[in-house]
Design a binder for these strands. Structure first.
Lengths: 146, 146
DNA sequence: CCGGATCCTAACGGATACTG
DNA sequence: CAGTATCCGTTAGGATCCGG
């Protein structure tokens, strides 16, 4: 199960080139696994959670405090997903009270750069976008107003 | 409405610096507008749709064909949102049959770079992640197996 | 302190039918 | 062709209780 076969990989058959071209798997295709990855990244909380882990390991409650508004359920779920993706390491310390630390893996660190870029973009452009909202809501006030 | 006041901006009072520091608005804060932006980006389809617009204006149905699996409802919704954000320009040609073209604005183009970076990351790392999935599902088979 | 299990609601999002 | 409106199933996700 979880057949990792890349789209069209089976057609390669006896081809000498084992690695498929990057162009072969485009996220725009429906079944493509890379699409699933984008979906995960597109997850509401993943960006925020990964973002908090850029300066070393952090505890569960610590992360939870950092990401305002996240519920414990969603944090657990997000962290589990990231762990399954191999982007985050989960370390349990058998103490009382229990302590669990989460840390980006090497792969997770590579994700950090694009994610931070997005975060930066959001911060830098939120002004423009807010202005655009006003303009849009103003010019389209005829269809639906307050 | 849609008060653009940055968090803590009111406290600045008579400060000579009208522009707030970028550090003042972090997407991790709950009410911060930049969070809303991240949410939009985190939308399931936005990344894909914006991605298809990187080589010039495209028609509705054209985009729809490019983004496999998107429904017409979701495409409309996504495009409307992007238009409201000022990231996409919508041009209606009064013809029969009607023709509507969508094009990235300047701001939209600035988003393209981080988005493409993410897309690239997904493609490059989906192999590692898939492998991680197998490993994870294998080692955690005790809790839930087929 | 960490996080699993459950319940329950709001939304997301698809299918379809209809307008210009 | 582009878009709206409606219906309706699926899921995301919050609240709460519980167990390690």
């Amino acid at each position: 199960m979880v057949t990792i076969t890349a789209a069209g990989a089976s057609e390669l058959g006896t081809r000498a080139k084992p690695a498929f071209s990057l162009d072969d798997l485009n996220p725009y295709a429906d079944g493509c696994p890379s699409r699933r990855l984008l979906d995960r990244i597109g997850d509401k909380w993943t960006v925020l959670v990964v973002g908090t882990l850029d300066d070393g390991p952090r505890r569960f409650s610590d992360i939870r405090r950092s990401v305002a508004g996240i519920s414990q359920k969603m944090l657990t779920q997000t962290l589990r997903g990231l762990e399954r993706d191999g982007l985050v390491n989960r370390t349990v310390y058998a103490e009382v009270p229990p302590r669990v630390e989460y840390e980006l893996t090497v792969a997770g660190t590579t994700l950090l750069a694009p994610l931070k870029a997005l975060e930066r973009w959001s911060i830098e452009h939120f002004g423009d976008v807010s202005a655009s909202w006003e303009l849009y809501d103003d010019t389209h006030a005829d269809s639906a107003e307050s």
